[in-house]
Nucleic acid binder design. Structure first.
Lengths: 405, 405
DNA sequence: GTATCTTGTTCGTTTATCGAACTAAATCGC
DNA sequence: GCGATTTAGTTCGATAAACGAACAAGATAC
C-alpha cells in the first residue's frame, strides 16, 4: 500500500524483471547457502532454465561461486552455490571521541586486520591520516582490487546521501564533506552514516539474531543515547536526517539540563556519563559532570564490572539506568510497536540487572499484552556493532532490493 | 536500501514490468489530469507506443476516460485523459462513541449522500443496521454495480489484514470480526482501519496539501489522542498493530492517571476531555472527569467557540492544550523527523491560539534548525478526515504501487 | 541392465519494452 | 492556397525477458 512518488519514480524497463529476480536469488543464496539451482527454482517458483541463466550471470560477475557436489537419496547430485565474500573486502571505520578504529573485513563481516589510533579532531588532518592507513592496509593485505569500498560510522548527524557530516558535537565538526574528501584520497567508494543508524543496518544485514525481523529499533547507549529505526527492512532517516533521536525526548520535565539544551532528556539519565555520575554520587548534570568524571578516571566499564562483582553502589547505579532505559524503551514501543528492540553499549555487560528493570517498565506501561511482550535483547559491546555497521554500509547496497515504482 | 524479505517475496513475472508501468501511468494521470498520451510518454521517458497500449488497457477497464481535445500552439491536438472516479463509488463508515456516519462517495472523495445514526454497541446489532443502510443507500442511488467497496474507520486498535477489531475501549469491543461480518451481509469488499491511521491514509491519497510529502505524522486530537505515522508513502502499523500511540507516552511522571492506566500520558493533557476539564477548572483526571463533563454539558466545540469570542478562561484552556500538544509534537519530531505534521480535531478551530504554543515548544526543543522548522498544519474538523480516511481505505489499493521484491 | 528420479541445460513460445516509421491534424511561411 | 513544419498518436519489426517443454547428465533401486 505504498504510494508511488510521481516526482521521483523508477519505471520498469526491459531489464527490471531480471534485476528483481536476480536480487531475490542472490538473497536466497545468502541466507540458505549452500543451495542448489533446483532448490532456488522451487523456492522462487521459477523455471530451472531461468535460474540457470541468472546463476551464470552471477558466477561470471564473481558474486557467487560453485562449491562441492552434495549427496542426495536419489538422482543427480546438485552443485551447491555460495555467495563470494572472501574476495570482496571492505574497510570499516569507527570514528569516536576517544579513538578511531580501522578494520579490514570481508563482505560477510569476517575481520582481517584491525588498527586503532587516537582521533585527530581536525577534519583534514583526520582524513589524511585515514587515507595513509587505508592505503597501507590494502597494500599489506594485497586487497587493492578486491576492496568494494569504505564504510564510516560517525557520532553525530550525517546526510548519508551526500556523505556530509552535518553536526558532530563530540568531534566539534559542522558541515564536513567526509565522503568526497576520503574518496578523492583513496579512490574508493565511501559510505558515511551516523552510529545508531549504522548499528541498525548491521543488525538487518549481518546478524543471525535478526532472523527475518523487519521492524525493530536499535537502541545505542554510549556517550550519547540514540536509536536506529527500521521499518519494513529499511532504516528510517527522516526528512532532515535526524530521525531516531529518542535520546532527546524528556522523561522528566524538571530533570537535569542535557547537552542538547533541553531538560530531563532520556540521554541525561541513561548515557554512560549519567551511569558513572550516579555511581559517584554526583548530581545528574552532564554539562558539569563531564569534567568531574574525566578527573575521577572511573569509566562505565568499571561500574559495570563492579556491579558484576557485587558492589552495591554500582548495582544500584546500573539498575537505575536500566529503569530509565525502560522508560525510553516504552516510548519506543508506544510510538512504533517494533517486533524487537536491540540494546547496544557497555551497559549490556550487566544485562542481568538491566533487563528486568526494562521489562518491568515496559510491562507496566504497555497498552496491549502483545506490546508488553516486545522482545528486548542485548548486543554486547564485544560484537563491535559500530564496525559491523560500517561494513553493512558497503554490503547493504550489494544485496538491497532494486528500487522500483 | 530495503532488504528483501526472503520469507515473503514477490518475484517478477512476465507481466511485472507492465504492472509497474501501468500503475505509474495511472498515478501520473491522477495527479496531472487532464494529461495527454504524449505528455505521459515524456514524463515516463517511455515510447509513445507503449503508452498507447497501456492507456488502451486502462480505457477498456474503465479506469481512465478520454476527455476533450485541447488547444496547442502548434501541431495536432491531444485527446486528454482523466481518471474515472464518478462511476466508481465507495461506502465510507465512521464509527464513533457518540454516533455513526455512513457516506456514499466517489473514489475522488466527492460526497454523494450522508446518513447519521446513534451507534449501537452490540457488534451484531450494529453490523445488521449498517448492512440495511448500505443496501438502501446503494439502491436509492443506483450504485450497486458501481460500488468498489466499504471503508470503515474505528476508534480503537484494528488488525487491518484480517479486518478484526482487537480492542475498542470506547465501544467496549474486543476481538470482533468486522470485515467478514459486513462483507457477508453486503457482498462487498470491506476494509477496516483505526481512525488516526485512516486519517493519515486520506492525507496521503486525497489531500492536495500533502503535495508530494511522503514522510509525515497525522496527529488526531479527539476523545483520544493518537497518530498515523507515514514513512516513505506508507502507513506504519507496527508489529502488533499498535504503532503511533504517541498519546500514551507520559509527558509528566507525576501527572494524572490516564484511561490506559499509565500516569501523565500526553492524551491525559490534550484530549478534548482534558481541554474541557481545564476550562471548567477540574483537576486533570480523565477517569473521574468523564462523568462530570457529561453532566456539565460543555463540549470542546463550546470551549473553542468561546475562545474565539474572547472568553479568557477558554483561551487559557486552549492555549494550555496547545502547549502540551507542542510537547507531543516535539516528541514526534525527535523520534521520526517527519517532513510535516498534520493536526486534526476540534481544537484546530482555535488554531490562532494552538499554533504559536506548538511552535514555541518545538522551537525550544528541536535539535537542529531544520527540525525546528518542521511544518505543523491544521486539518479542520469540517474536512471530515475520518470519512475521507474510510474512502482512502478503498481508493488506496487501486492506486498503490505493486508489491515487488 | 533397465527403470526411475533429480539436477541442470537448451530451445521454441509468449509477452513485454524499444525504437523507427507512419498517419493524423494542427499552424506557419510565403 | 499550399507545401513545410510541428506535435499527437498508432503500427510494426527488433530485442529481451519469462515461460514451459524437451532433453541430457548423473545418480539409485530392483
Amino acid at each position: 500500500m505504498r504510494k508511488i512518488d510521481t516526482r521521483d519514480f523508477r519505471r520498469a524497463t526491459r531489464s527490471t524483471s531480471r534485476q528483481i529476480n536476480r536480487q531475490i536469488l542472490l538473497n536466497l543464496v545468502r541466507e540458505h547457502q549452500p543451495i542448489s539451482r533446483a532448490d532456488l527454482a522451487r523456492r522462487m517458483t521459477l523455471g530451472r532454465g531461468v535460474v540457470t541463466t541468472l546463476v551464470n550471470e552471477l558466477l561470471e560477475e564473481g558474486v557467487l561461486y560453485e562449491g562441492a557436489l552434495v549427496e542426495l537419496p536419489r538422482g543427480r547430485r546438485p552443485k551447491m552455490l555460495h555467495v563470494e565474500t572472501r574476495d570482496r573486502l571492505v574497510v570499516a571505520i569507527d570514528l569516536r571521541f576517544s579513538r578511531t578504529d580501522v578494520l579490514l573485513a570481508d563482505l560477510g563481516g569476517k575481520q582481517i586486520a584491525l588498527e586503532r589510533f587516537a582521533t585527530r579532531f581536525g577534519p583534514e588532518e583526520l582524513l589524511d591520516e585515514l587515507a595513509v592507513r587505508v592505503r597501507r592496509l590494502l597494500r599489506t593485505h594485497a586487497a587493492r582490487g578486491r576492496c568494494q569500498g569504505i564504510g564510516m560510522v560517525i557520532p553525530g548527524m550525517v546526510d548519508r546521501a551526500s556523505g556530509r557530516v552535518l553536526n558532530a558535537p563530540q568531534l566539534g565538526w559542522r558541515d564536513v564533506q567526509v565522503r568526497a574528501g576520503l574518496a578523492a584520497r583513496t579512490g574508493l567508494a565511501v559510505h558515511v552514516e551516523n552510529a545508531p543508524a549504522a548499528c541498525a543496518l548491521a543488525h538487518i544485514w549481518l546478524s543471525e539474531r535478526a532472523n527475518g525481523i523487519r521492524d525493530f529499533v536499535y537502541l545505542s547507549v554510549s556517550d550519547g543515547v540514540g536509536t536506529g529505526v527500521v521499518v519494513n527492512g529499511e532504516v528510517v532517516r527522516g526528512h532532515a536526517h535526524t530521525a531516531g533521536e529518542f535520546g532527546h525526548i524528556p522523561i522528566r520535565a524538571e530533570g537535569p539540563i542535557c547537552l542538547c539544551g533541553s531538560q530531563g532528556c532520556l540521554e541525561a539519565y541513561t548515557s554512560n556519563l549519567a551511569t558513572v555520575a550516579r555511581y559517584l554520587g554526583h548530581e545528574l548534570s552532564p554539562a558539569i559532570a563531564r569534567e568531574l568524571l574525566q578527573q575521577s578516571g572511573v569509566t562505565v566499564d568499571d561500574v559495570v564490572r563492579r556491579a558484576g562483582e557485587g558492589d552495591e553502589r554500582a548495582r544500584a547505579a546500573v539498575a537505575d539506568t536500566g529503569r530509565y532505559l525502560g522508560i525510553g524503551v516504552s516510548m519506543i514501543v508506544q510510538a512504533l510497536n517494533p517486533a524487537q528492540i536491540v540494546v547496544g553499549g557497555e551497559i549490556t555487560g550487566a544485562w542481568d540487572l538491566v533487563e528486568p528493570a526494562i521489562r518491568a517498565e515496559v510491562a507496566r506501561r504497555a497498552l496491549t499484552p502483545r506490546a508488553a511482550e516486545t522482545p528486548v535483547i542485548p548486543e554486547p559491546a564485544g560484537h563491535m556493532p559500530r564496525l559491523r555497521g560500517a561494513i553493512a554500509l558497503v554490503a547493504a547496497p550489494v544485496y538491497a532490493a532494486p528500487q522500483v515504482g
